[in-house]
């Protein structure tokens, strides 16, 4: 468990250092995720790899980790009520258009790609 956590935290720390050195608006943990992916590919990691074990355990409770920031909703109650309609409609409709757009574009390109592969002589 500890070896795995060392991998996770170290990847995040290196990610944080990189985004500061490169001065980009990307969160350190996202860069850390890419770094850990490189490590896991490099090690040809199977399910016994310490980072895989610790990472899987942590991800089982991913939802817990959003509660602290989510409770912040109560701190903005007045602001949210003041602009309730534009906020609610904008979040809901923009979410819907976004998820459908990505699914339609990727789904469409994926099927074209599939047809191209199928046409290729074996």
């Amino acid at each position: 468990m500890i070896t795995g956590l060392v991998w996770l935290v170290t990847c995040q720390a290196v990610g944080e250092v990189l985004v500061r050195l490169l001065d980009v608006d990307v969160p350190g943990p996202v860069v850390g995720m890419i770094l850990l992916l490189v490590v896991l590919r490099w090690h040809r990691a199977d399910d016994d790899h310490p980072a895989v074990l610790a990472g899987s355990r942590l991800l089982e409770h991913l939802q817990l980790l959003f509660i602290p920031a989510g409770v912040g909703i109560v701190a903005y109650g007045a602001l949210l009520r003041a602009d309730a309609v534009p906020i609610a409609v904008s979040l809901l409709v923009s979410w819907l258009v976004g998820i459908v757009a990505v699914a339609a574009i990727f789904g469409g390109l994926r099927r074209r790609h599939g047809r191209r592969l199928a046409r290729r002589p074996a």
């Binding site: 350190g28 990691a45 980072a51 895989v52």
Partner: peptide, 28 residues
Amino acid sequence: DYAAYRSGVEVIAFWLGPATVALAVPLH
């Protein structure tokens, strides 16, 4: 006070960073 709550549960919120890194595991 929300600010007091938020800093009190920092030990929980902290793990969001390593958990984001851990998303490399299912991806792998």
